[in-house]
């Protein structure tokens, strides 16, 4: 993992550690706690506080839950 901007790796690690968490409803403070407790983030320094960082981590976490990209049918775009 290459620091706090390696969102996909962080998301995958979070999913592995907490597969049944309500990601959308998760408070940023709780998310920061989870990030600090991940062994993979040892040595990364303080968790960034920006809302955009937490959004990126949550998006990557949900991405780690998605089975395939092709699952969204075209009709859903209409």
């Amino acid at each position: 993992m290459n620091g706090w901007s390696d969102y996909l790796a962080i998301g995958a690690a979070l999913q592995k550690a907490w597969p049944d968490v309500d990601v959308v409803g998760l408070d940023n403070g709780d998310l920061a706690g989870k990030l600090r407790s991940l062994p993979e983030t040892d040595g990364f320094g303080p968790v960034p506080e920006k809302a955009s960082f937490f959004f990126a981590v949550k998006a990557a976490w949900l991405k780690a839950r998605q089975p395939t990209e092709a699952d969204l049918p075209m009709d859903a775009l209409l």
Binding site: K58, A59, R65
Partner: peptide
């Protein structure tokens, strides 16, 4: 709705 719906909700 699973991760796809959650992703949109996020």
């Amino acid at each position: 709705g699973g991760s796809l719906m959650d992703s949109n909700l996020l």
